[in-house]
C-alpha cells in the first residue's frame, strides 16, 4: 500500500513559533482563526512540510535517527491530530 503524502493546505495561513529552549509550539491557523499549542514533534512536522517535503516516511526516519521511541506511533498521532485540525491534508504523490 502506498504511503500517503501530506501537505499544508495552500489556504491554511499558518504561523507558528517555538521559543528557544522550549519544547512546544504555538500555531495560528488563519483559515480557522484558531490558535493551538503543539508538541515539538508536531511543530517540526509542519516545518518539515513547509520546507517542501511531503513524505512522512522520511520524517519517521528522522524521528528514529533522533532516538525517538516508537516513531511509527508518534508519527501516526501527529498526522491524526494535525489532520483533525485541518492544518495538513493528504495529497496524491503518484
Amino acid at each position: 500500500m502506498r504511503t500517503l503524502h501530506w501537505r499544508i493546505p495552500p489556504d491554511a495561513s499558518l504561523i507558528w513559533h517555538c521559543w528557544p529552549g522550549e519544547h512546544e509550539y504555538v500555531l495560528y491557523h488563519g483559515a480557522a482563526n484558531q490558535t493551538h499549542q503543539l508538541a515539538e514533534t508536531a511543530g517540526l512536522f509542519l516545518a518539515f512540510l513547509a520546507s517542501g517535503e511531503s513524505d512522512p516516511d522520511h520524517f519517521q526516519r528522522m524521528l528514529r535517527d533522533e532516538g525517538i521511541e516508537q516513531p511509527e506511533e508518534v508519527l501516526a498521532h501527529i498526522l491524526e491530530a494535525l489532520h483533525q485540525l485541518d492544518v495538513i491534508e493528504p495529497i496524491d504523490a503518484a
Binding site: S13, I15, H17, C18, W19, E22, H23, E24, Y25, V26, Y28, G30, N33, T35, Q37
Partner: peptide, 29 residues
C-alpha cells in the same frame, strides 16, 4: 512558566484575540 502555555492562557483570556487574528498572534508572541 513555559511561554507556549502562557501564550495560550493570554490568548484564551484576551478580550479580542480572535477578532484581531494574525495581528493578535504576533502581538502576543
Amino acid at each position: 512558566q513555559d511561554k507556549a502555555s502562557a501564550f495560550i492562557h493570554l490568548a484564551s483570556h484576551a478580550f479580542n484575540y480572535n477578532l484581531l487574528g494574525p495581528l493578535a498572534f504576533r502581538l502576543t508572541k
